[in-house]
Amino acid sequence: MKRLSLTPYVIWMVLFTVVPMLLVLYYAFTVPTEGGTTWSLENFTRFFQPIYLRVFIRSLNLAVISTLICLLLGYPAAMIMAGNAFKRKHVIMLLFVVPMWMNFLLRTYAWLTILERNGFLNSLLTFFSLPRVNILYTNGAVVLGMVYNFLPFMVLPIYSVLSKIDKGVVEAAGDLGANPFQVFIKVILPLSLPGVVSGITMVFMPAMTTFVISRLLGGGQFTLIGNLIEQQFLVVGDWGFGSAISVVMIVVILLSMAVMSFFEGEEKDVALW
């Protein structure tokens, strides 16, 4: 009886998750011919042309930079929040996640207001008689937008792992002669690796595939792989090529996840797959 309740979901899952994914694969591995379609790897070989590879490299580059910045900013933040610098920890955590509840588009749009030529930042700079800057529509703005949007995805998993570390373990390390720096390097850091891994994955993945941030803050001149896919589907209409890029992206993300879980050390289940 209880199993029956699964039926609607299984049907839904097959129709709206499995079939669409198969369709993506189908389009990726076929090309249209006069009579219909034929199996082919052409869509993939096209992707390895220099123009597209350059887009791929640029996406990878920006995503890696953003992920690193998030890690460097986020790890200390997570550590401080998990520690005892604040009395009301849950309030601090709440304050930390509140901005994420703002619509993603609006959050990104807000940076337009700050960064544009006559925006908040330049008004502020003018007020202090400093030279104006033009960051908007540069790589820098795109990275800024990514860091802003994805920083919490880095901090929260690390925070959650750090705050679960048994205080006794830290004391035990001190008891066995480790000074605070050694305690961090030899105990806290390795124990927090699972959090770091899921943080990196959760930042890298959307950073690699976003097309909104690059469109709004990069002004459309900095095409990322997400924009490329969007164009294929909504402008060019080349679904085969768009699907192929998507498949490549899934493979890249699966690979990076595999690499990450290797670093994380064997079977600790973060339950990503």
């Binding site: 006794g168 001190g174 002669g177």
Partner: peptide, 19 residues
């Protein structure tokens, strides 16, 4: 501080390093 004392502790819930 504890790391400079010639004293060692067996903790209540062992506090073993799981990594």
């Amino acid at each position: 501080p504890s790391h400079k004392r010639k004293v060692n502790t067996v903790f209540q819930r062992y506090a073993l390093f799981s990594h």
